[in-house]
C-alpha cells in the first residue's frame, strides 16, 4: 500500500496515471456487469435479510431479528456450521493434495498420457443425477464397490451414507470425484513452468524432491492458492450432493449450511431468514479468504507483484 499512498499526490497524467486509467478500463466490463446484474440482487438479498419475507408475497421489516434468531431460535444452526467446517476441511485438504499428486503424475511424459488426462477429467464433466445414483451404488454397504474393495484387504466396510459417523466422510470422498477440475488448472500451471528452471536445478544437482520443493511448488503456488480459495468457497456452499444423496441425514449428520439455507428458503418459506443465513455465510467465507490472502504473502510466489503489497 505504500506505493499507492505515494501515488495519491496530484500529478499531471504521468505513466502511472495512464496505467491507473488503463486498469479501470480493463476491469470496466466486469464493473459494469457487477453494477447492472450483480449489485441489485446482492443488495436486495441484504435488504430481505432484514424482513420476514416468505419468498412469495408477504414481507415485513423485522430488523436484525433474523440474525438474532440464528443463535437463539435455530436449533440446527451450530450443527450445520460444524458440519460445513468438517466437510470443507476434509474436502479441501484431501482435494488439494490429491489433485496436486494427480497433476504431477499427469505431467509426466509417458506414452498415451493425453488419454489418461482425459480419463481423469471424465468424472468432473459427468453431471448431476447420473453420478449421484452411481455413488449411491458405490457406497451401498452390501454390494457397493468401496466395501467390496475393502473386503479384499479384510476390512468390513462401514454403512457409509446410512451411518451418522460415516455419512460425512462418504460425502467428502465423493467430493474427491471432482478432483479432475483442479487437476486441469494445476496441469496448466505445471505446463507453464519454464524448462530452463528444471535444467538449472539439474545443473545444481538437485534431486527430484528438492526440484519439486524449490522449483515446481513456488512456480505453481499462485495456482495452488487459486485452488485453495475456490475450493473453500465452493465447499462451504456444498448443496447438490447433499440434496440428492442424504438430504441432511441420517439425523443431522450431513445437514450442511446451504442445504439448511435452501430448506428455509424454498421449503419453510422463510426467504428473509435464508437471506440472513446467506450473509452470515458470506462473512464467514470472506473472513477465511481474507486470512488466506494474508497468509499467501508468505508462501505464494508471484513473478509479477504489481502493487498489491
Amino acid at each position: 500500500m505504500r506505493a499507492t499512498r505515494l501515488f495519491r499526490r496530484p500529478r499531471p497524467l504521468t505513466l502511472r496515471a495512464r496505467e491507473e486509467l488503463d486498469f479501470y478500463l480493463a476491469i470496466s466490463p466486469w464493473a459494469i456487469g457487477f453494477i447492472v446484474f450483480g449489485g441489485g440482487p446482492l443488495v436486495a438479498s441484504l435488504v430481505m435479510s432484514l424482513t420476514d419475507w416468505t419468498g412469495l408475497t408477504t414481507r415485513h421489516w423485522v430488523g436484525v431479528q433474523n440474525y438474532v434468531a440464528m443463535v437463539t431460535a435455530d436449533r440446527d444452526f451450530f450443527t450445520v456450521l460444524r458440519n460445513t467446517f468438517y466437510y470443507s476441511f476434509g474436502s479441501v485438504s484431501l482435494g488439494v493434495v490429491l489433485s496436486l499428486a494427480v497433476a504431477l503424475l499427469m505431467n509426466q511424459k509417458v506414452p498415451g498420457i493425453n488419454v489418461f488426462r482425459t480419463l481423469y477429467y471424465l468424472p468432473a464433466v459427468t453431471s448431476g443425477v447420473a453420478i449421484a445414483i452411481m455413488f449411491a451404488w458405490i457406497f451401498n454397504p452390501q454390494v457397493g464397490l468401496i466395501n467390496f474393495l475393502l473386503s479384499l484387504i479384510g476390512i468390513k466396510g462401514p454403512l457409509w451414507l446410512a451411518s451418522q459417523q460415516w455419512a460425512m466422510p462418504a460425502l467428502i470422498l465423493m467430493s474427491l470425484w471432482g478432483v479432475g477440475g483442479n487437476m486441469v488448472v494445476l496441469l496448466a500451471g505445471l505446463q507453464g513452468v519454464p524448462e530452463e528452471l528444471y535444467d538449472a536445478a539439474k545443473v545444481d544437482g538437485a534431486g527430484k524432491w528438492r526440484e519439486f520443493l524449490h522449483v515446481t511448488l513456488p512456480m505453481i503456488s499462485p495456482v495452488v492458492f487459486f485452488i485453495i480459495i475456490t475450493s473453500i468457497i465452493s465447499t462451504f456452499q456444498v448443496f447438490e450432493n447433499v440434496y440428492i444423496m442424504t438430504r441432511g441425514g441420517p439425523g443431522t449428520a450431513t445437514r450442511v449450511y446451504v442445504f439448511h439455507l435452501y430448506q428455509n428458503a424454498f421449503e419453510y418459506q422463510k426467504m428473509g431468514y435464508a437471506s440472513a443465513l446467506a450473509w452470515v455465510l458470506f462473512l464467514i467465507i470472506l473472513g477465511l479468504t481474507w486470512l488466506q490472502l494474508r497468509a499467501s504473502r508468505y508462501w505464494v510466489y508471484y513473478e509479477f507483484e504489481g502493487e498489491t503489497r
Binding site: N140, G144, L161
Partner: peptide, 10 residues
Amino acid sequence: PTPAETQAFP
C-alpha cells in the same frame, strides 16, 4: 431392510 440395505434404490 435397514436404510443401508435400501440405498441406491431411489
